[in-house]
């Protein structure tokens, strides 16, 4: 499959008609999804015949790209049933098999920990009334142990060769650190590699955290992510956000 052909197939993916602000449902463009999946397969061989998970799959753009590139087993996890319904329709259109699970990928305590860490890094004030979460040092293995950080996914630990995801960027107030929480869970699910998008402004922090979790992070590309201003608190029609495409490689 050529890159151009992949992108043109992905134009057929139906996306959110009514994005939800609390979930930061920025759709992944066909252009971007095609590039990620194409690179994951042609450069690293991470998709064909592999077990692949999409965390926060939304309408399934990335997982469908992975499916077209020949993923052997596909799982999509998302909290939102409207998104999952659209994803299911897309799977039918593309005649792809994928398991969908409605679940909260980043439950309370994990999110509190990462929010506290992010605030500490930024030197910003703690959330009013929020008590500081316990961020005591723990071993890398413990830090990404799913039975501790994502109980609903405990039995999926290390079940996937590859995780591919476009997590919420954590820009919405109240969602701080959510991108790091997603990354932590992804590293607990994957055996080989995690592909993820994060704001470029947090590059050094991500590199350091990933290393602490036993993963070697590489920025594959810097992209401009055109975020349509679908939410009321946005003042302009759309903004370009500088985003890094990462590949995190897990050691044995």
């Amino acid at each position: 499959m050529k890159l151009k052909a992949l992108e043109s197939h992905l134009q057929e993916v139906e996306v959110f008609s009514d994005p939800k602000v609390q979930f930061e449902q920025y759709p992944t463009s066909a252009h971007l999804a095609a590039r990620i999946a194409y690179m994951a397969e042609t450069t690293y061989g991470d998709l064909t015949d592999k077990a692949v998970a999409d965390l926060g799959c939304g309408c399934g753009m990335l997982s469908i790209a992975a499916g077209i590139m020949g993923a052997g087993l596909l799982y999509g996890f998302d909290i939102d049933d409207d998104a999952l319904e659209i994803a299911q329709g897309n799977l039918e259109t593309f005649e792809l098999e994928m398991e969908l699970v409605r679940v909260n990928v980043v439950a309370g305590r994990l999110l509190e920990e990462e929010a506290a860490r992010t605030e500490k890094k930024e030197g910003g004030p703690r959330q009013a009334g929020g008590k500081p979460a316990n961020v005591a040092a723990s071993s890398a293995a413990q830090d990404i142990a799913l039975d501790r950080i994502a109980p609903p996914l405990a039995r999926f630990a290390k079940q996937f060769d590859t995780v591919i995801m476009n997590p919420p960027f954590g820009t919405k107030p109240g969602n701080r650190g959510i991108d790091m929480a997603f990354l932590r869970v992804a590293l607990g699910l994957a055996r080989t590699a995690v592909y993820s998008l994060h704001k470029s402004s947090t590059r050094d922090y991500i590199l350091q955290r990933a290393a602490a979790w036993g993963a070697k992070g590489t920025v594959l590309a810097q992209l401009r992510f055109d975020v349509p201003q679908m939410y009321k608190f946005h003042k302009r029609a759309s903004v370009d956000v500088e985003v890094d495409l990462w590949r995190f490689e897990l050691g044995d």
């Binding site: 049933d81 299911q88 969908l100 699970v101 909260n104």
Partner: peptide
């Protein structure tokens, strides 16, 4: 429901 388990 419709093949999707709800674990929320």
């Amino acid at each position: 429901k419709d093949g999707i388990p709800n674990m929320l």
